[in-house]
Design a binder for these strands. Structure first.
Length: 279
DNA sequence: CGCATATCCTGACTGC
DNA sequence: TGCAGTCAGGATATGC
C-alpha cells in the first residue's frame, strides 16, 4: 500500500526530523519485524549511531549511519513510521514493533498490524550507497528517471500482463497496485495487456504517465485509502486519493469518458480500469 | 529462464 | 448482534 509517493513523503519527513540525530535507545518488542539478524544485533548496531542521511530506493527507506552502515526499513502493507515530539510519550499503540529514542528527546515508532514490514541493518553498501541486499531492485523512476528504452527492453517478448510488469520491482522500483492502475489509465492502456504487445508509442505514453502520476502523487503527499492506514511521519493523511481516476472506483464514472470503471481480476489481484478509453 | 500461484498476517467489511 | 468468510496487496518462495 505504501508505494513510492508514500515512502518518499516519509523519507522527506525523516530528512527533516531525524537526520543529524543520534540513536540513544532501541526497543524491539515485535517478533517478526527484524528477520535477517537478531533483534539484539539490530539494536546493538543502532545504539550510539548518528543518522547522516535519509534515502530511498523504490519502496525501501534507507537511513545512513555514521559508521557507513545503513538502516533499511520497508513498510510493506501496513507499516507506519511515526515521529513523536520531545516530551510526548503516550503508551505505544497496538502493533508497535520498534521504538527508537533519539538524542533530542524525540522518538521514532514503527507500527505494523500485519507484520509484513521489515527492518535490518546492512554493512555492505555499493558505490551508489545502496545495500547489497537491494541489488536486485530496478530503476527508481524519481531518482533515475524512467526512459522509454528501459520499458521497451524489459517488456519485449513478455507474455505477462502490463500490471504485473509495472509492479515488478526488479524492472521499476516503487510502483504498486494503486499507481500501476493510475499510470495505465493515464496512458490509456489496459493493465491486462501483455507487456510484449505494447507499441513504441504506447511505451512512450506509459513512461510519461508514470513520471507524471508519481510526481503528482508525491506533491499530494501520497494516497491514504479508506482504512487511513497510510500516514506520514507526523500522522497526517495524504491527499492523492482524491485524484484517483480508477483505483478502487469500480462502478463510478470514468473521469475521461464517463463510462463505468470496472474491476478486472489479474491472477488473484484486482486491477481497476476504464474499458471505454483504455485499450 | 518466465510465469502463475501460495504464503505471511490482521482488520475491515459483507452476508447470513 | 454475532460470526464465518472474503478481501486487502507488499515481496518472496515454490511449482511447472
Amino acid at each position: 500500500m505504501p508505494e513510492l509517493p508514500e515512502v518518499e513523503t516519509v523519507r522527506r519527513g525523516l530528512e527533516a526530523a531525524v537526520v543529524g540525530k543520534q540513536i540513544t535507545k532501541v526497543q524491539v518488542p515485535g517478533r517478526r519485524t527484524v528477520r535477517r539478524q537478531s533483534r539484539e544485533e539490530l539494536a546493538r548496531r543502532l545504539v550510539g549511531r548518528r543518522i547522516t542521511m535519509a534515502g530511498r530506493r523504490g519502496k525501501f527507506l534507507l537511513l545512513s549511519l555514521d559508521d557507513d552502515s545503513v538502516l533499511v526499513v520497508h513498510l510493506r502493507m501496513t507499516g507506519q513510521l511515526l515521529h513523536l515530539a520531545g516530551g510526548e510519550r503516550p503508551a505505544p499503540e497496538a502493533h508497535t514493533h520498534v521504538l527508537v529514542d533519539l538524542d533530542d528527546g524525540t522518538e521514532l515508532r514503527f507500527v505494523d498490524p500485519r507484520t509484513f514490514g521489515e527492518w535490518f541493518v546492512s554493512n555492505d553498501i555499493d558505490a551508489r550507497g545502496v545495500p547489497i541486499e537491494l541489488a536486485h531492485i530496478g530503476r527508481d523512476p524519481l531518482l533515475e528517471g524512467l526512459p522509454k528504452a528501459l520499458l521497451a527492453s524489459s517488456f519485449a517478448g513478455r507474455r505477462a500482463c502490463l500490471k504485473a510488469l509495472l509492479t515488478d520491482q526488479r524492472i521499476v522500483a516503487g510502483i504498486g497496485s494503486i499507481y500501476a492502475d493510475e499510470i495505465c489509465f493515464r496512458a490509456k492502456i489496459r493493465p491486462d495487456r501483455s507487456g510484449g504487445s505494447l507499441s513504441d508509442a504506447e511505451l512512450g505514453s506509459l513512461a510519461r504517465a508514470a513520471r507524471s502520476v508519481l510526481r503528482a502523487a508525491v506533491a499530494s503527499r501520497g494516497s491514504s485509502l479508506r482504512d487511513q492506514r497510510y500516514r506520514d511521519l507526523a500522522g497526517s493523511l495524504g491527499s492523492y486519493q482524491g485524484r484517483h481516476c480508477v483505483y478502487d472506483r469500480a462502478g463510478e464514472p470514468c473521469p475521461r469518458c464517463g463510462r463505468s470503471v470496472v474491476r478486472l481480476m489479474i491472477g488473484a489481484r484486482s486491477a481497476y480500469c476504464c474499458v471505454g478509453c483504455q485499450s
